[in-house]
Write a protein that binds this DNA or RNA. Structure first.
Lengths: 338, 338
DNA sequence: CGAGCATGCACAATCGGTTGTGCATAGCGT
DNA sequence: ACGCTATGCACAACCGATTGTGCATGCTCG
């Protein structure tokens, strides 16, 4: 290992000098096209072992520039702070790696401005494709990508200008609601009200989940009072406040709750603890999955979105871009703890 | 917006043609050096508005190649799946952004091979600095970076070949243990055994935490039996199995437990629930922080590592690289729920 | 023995910016 | 009118890889 005194990194020109050959030959050997270019096996292995021993590493910027392909695939993500988004990032990364792509992920804090800024950076780094996860404004980003000739795909929340892969929120919510109602029936409390809490009214997923919730109740002959639907935003504090307001107006605790995310669940649980309620009495269904929470509460059922399949679908769309930009793929989530 | 028919992206050469000037002038204007290069304000604003209206975006690969600076800063991370690592990634990203750097983060699943592979990729993309978080083998990576002339910094777990920023694990554990012991005293159970469980014997942080645990007990005159120290690995299953084995050999549950991470806590809680124990009787101290878990258990105290300060320290080291490669910076964590 | 082909490699253009340098022209002072 | 500086910009050489093309040399075959 000859650590170059200049501390500059080795290039194919340096290797060419060392191997007494030309840069183009070195390049051909190092990127595997040497057979096609009729480089002798002898010279090839000489160059390869030299590259190895000198610790050569190709300059990806130069390669990307010349090839007009960066080898980078981008994702924007609201946050990392729950298992759902974390595992999305993780699977995206490993799947990208498997395909020889380098994944870069940017958190945008559910802020449309940051989303745009991140998308702009990714486009500047010439990502070959951009996956837009849970974006507040996916269409703007799809538009930006289209103008740069870059493919984009929406994940988790659908858009209208690029194909989307999302969970089947309505069906997941329907099944979760049925699971809740079944528990209530087992406990002879089938007529008790169930509170739907958390999420945003404007957001596609919340609307679908509310629809699934109502549908399930209807299927067992129950009407749903609007006062029991509280899309108070996802944030823990908002959920906690909404719950406390709700409780102030009535004498009894609901026997069961459909909570729209783990972050909302955090506020709910905190609020109940602070107000001295006994948690284990309540049946929880949470449209989200967290194994630690599941371990804590014996009657907490959770919806685990099928992240692996969602990411698979995303890459299928990347491999064979659909004609229809409005294509919507729904993936079935799984109900845990039933 | 003239969407180029060729669908190729605009370059400074295109802009130069449109503005009837030279590429070098366009470049100077777009990267802000035009005053120094005595370009007239008039021409500058013409080029700027043209770039704006045509949606020009500089090719970062080309820029990086010429400038010999990628503008990229890298981080390798074991996982995203807990709040600690997630927030590390998030703060790293936003701090990098604030400094005009583009952050790329790779998950390596605590696998030394993946760590090396990720580091190699990052070096190939010519990161200007690599932050190595919770690496199983930080020194190998530090070595790779050094050979490429790239600065590297260890985070969370220390190494000997690059400066490190970690939590003060011993002091955090000492304080957490005191908090546990105080609770026990309040409840007149101060002589009950406390179980330390989770983590890896070989890992620096676990060793320090065990030391802090023992020290705190010693400070109140308690000896620590080795049978009550179970560094059974972090994984939930391992922790659950270790706990079940432990319980099989004695008649009573420990009144309190020091659990070495939320992932271990998951296994512990699950094991206790499955075996019919009443969780709320137990005092938990967990060297990790998860607000949802904290909401669930009224007697769960948690150590929240000061991620913001740790990331700040990392960037200070990047700004002014220390002479001593063995420099170790310890950041005080906070005890939550006392 | 010479045409023709295969073999093995080097040359040089190129990707899109950046930056040192040089060359006109204008303005100014004497 | 002449020299001098300041102004405003263009030229061209890079950065490090990729790739179309071309040129020797050696070998085969009629």
């Amino acid at each position: 290992m000859v650590s170059d005194s200049s501390s500059k990194r080795l290039t194919i020109y340096d290797l060419a000098r060392l191997a007494e050959t030309s840069p183009s030959t070195v390049s051909a050997v190092l990127n595997g096209t040497w057979q096609r270019r009729r480089i002798s096996k002898k010279l090839a292995s000489k160059i390869l072992s030299l590259a190895q021993s000198e610790g050569y590493s190709a300059n990806m910027q130069a390669r990307a520039l010349r090839r007009e392909r960066s080898g980078i695939i981008g994702m924007i993500l609201p946050l990392y702070d729950n298992r759902y988004f974390s595992s999305i990032a993780q699977h995206f990364e490993s799947e990208a790696r498997r395909r020889g792509l380098f994944a870069i992920v940017s958190c945008t804090n559910r802020d449309p401005k940051q989303e745009c800024e991140a998308a702009r950076m990714m486009l500047a780094y010439r990502v070959e494709c951009l996956v837009c996860t849970g974006a507040t404004d996916p269409d703007t980003i799809a538009q930006m990508c289209a103008e740069s000739g870059v493919q984009s795909i929406n994940l988790d929340l659908p858009g209208s200008k690029a194909p989307s892969v999302i969970s089947n929120n309505r069906e997941g919510a329907r099944q979760l609601t049925h699971a809740i109602l079944n528990r209530l029936t087992e406990e002879k409390r089938s007529d008790d009200p169930v509170l739907f809490i958390g999420g945003r009214d404007e957001d596609h997923n919340t609307r679908e989940r509310i629809a699934g919730f109502k549908q399930a109740r209807e299927e067992v002959g129950l009407a749903t009072a609007e006062e029991n639907i509280l899309p108070c935003d996802y944030a823990a504090d908002k959920a906690q406040a909404a719950l406390e307001t709700y409780l102030r107006n009535r004498s009894t605790l609901p026997s069961a709750m459909f909570v729209n995310s783990t972050i909302s669940l955090e506020g709910i649980v905190r609020g109940l603890q602070l107000n001295g309620y006994y948690l284990d009495d309540i049946i929880f269904g949470c449209f989200d999955w967290d194994p630690l929470a599941a371990a804590f509460h014996p009657r907490l059922m959770m919806v685990r979105q099928n992240v692996i399949e969602m990411i698979d679908r995303v890459f299928e769309l990347i491999d064979t871009p659909p004609r229809d930009p409005q294509l919507l793929i729904e993936v079935q989530p799984e109900i845990m703890g039933v």
